[in-house]
Design a protein around this nucleic acid. Sequence first.
DNA 1: GTTGTATGAAGCAGAACCAG
DNA 2: CTGGTTCTGCTTCATACAAC
Length: 246
Amino acid sequence: MNLSRVDLNLLVVLDTICTEGGITKAADKLHLTQPAVSHALARLRDAFDDPLFERQGQRMVPTPLVQRLIEPLRDSLRSIGALLNDTQTFEPSTSNRRFVIGLRDFMESTVMPPLMRALAREAPGISVSSVRANRRALESELAAGTLDLAIDVLLPVADEVRVRHISVDRLAVVARQGHPAVDGAIDLEAYLAQRHIVVSSRRLGPGLDDLELRRLGLQRKIALRCQFYFAACRTVSETDLLLTMP
DNA sequence: GTTGTATGAAGCAGAACCAG
DNA sequence: CTGGTTCTGCTTCATACAAC
């Protein structure tokens, strides 16, 4: 195949069809019309002399050739993207960019004050939007560019996501003043005997502390699942429930 | 019937090429 | 440099076909 005869944009189309699993969804993603992507696929088929995708029900299933090529192709596209990004210099002092940062509510009050102080000093034109991060969508949001940055506990993520360890946080057990089971300190047995509040944006599933307890073969009783630490702390102050929080 | 893909026709815009 | 031609890729619109 003569590279000079191939429109490299078609490779982006190939990658998008493979990712989205269909022509119409790929067209939406690429801001093109369905026939435009279908025509692009026809050109790709001609260039590769292979059907590339075959229809199975509502999905376009990649042929063995695409399955073999797709990862090296994605690596190449990432390399080209990184190369192009390297040519665009970022100057914080003059930039007017808006950064979207995904983080949990309790981190907002910890992260934002020093961040905004630093920005006022070194990058006065930059603005920040802090949004609630959905852990399940974190990778896809970072990939799509709807999030520039996410701050969260260390999660297993794909190689495409750049991870930097920024700090270690300790967990604290919070109880109301005069709680009958807590006298300054609490041991594991007493901790497990109490009922707890878990703070999570998800409707179901264990919290990180529950996962850690499970790893030790232990389990605690959850009396309340709520969305925000502020509400959890208010509830703790008026009940005998315990809250484990950063 | 609905949804999704494939294809063709007609037309538009931009780039490349070439002759004058 | 300019204007005409050609090519490429896009669009919309229409339609056929396949799968569910």
